[in-house]
Amino acid sequence: MSTPVRVLVCDDDPLLLELLEFRLAAKGFDVQAARDGGEAMQLLESKPPSAVVLDAMMPFIDGYEVLRRIRENPTLKALPVIMLTARKQEKDIVGALELGASDFLAKPFIPEELVARLIRLTGPAQ
């Protein structure tokens, strides 16, 4: 058996984190949660995950800035990042993709869809 795929989930809404942890763990992912951009950056550097699910609006360092730093970091550059955000106007979606997001999902979202998109990016969870 191989080790589970580690996913970093970053959102300032604790309930959403709980929901994602529950759903993703059920699919066999190893889930790490971060409540804000600063915490996410720390986790990214200390133990890099295989994929990131990223909210846009977070305190301190927002999701776009986290994404930009990921793409500028040579070791993290190729990391799959899915933006999961309530900012869903055209300019927000285009902006996120231009910054290097691998995929974009708008809130409210369909958890099944998120899982499917994650697996497409990382391969099966285990």
């Binding site: 959403l16 809130k107 409210p108 369909i110 869809e113």
Partner: peptide, 12 residues
């Protein structure tokens, strides 16, 4: 209500 507002589709 809080949970329902987070998701959509079948899950909701």
């Amino acid at each position: 209500v809080e949970l329902v507002q987070l998701v959509r589709g079948d899950e909701r």
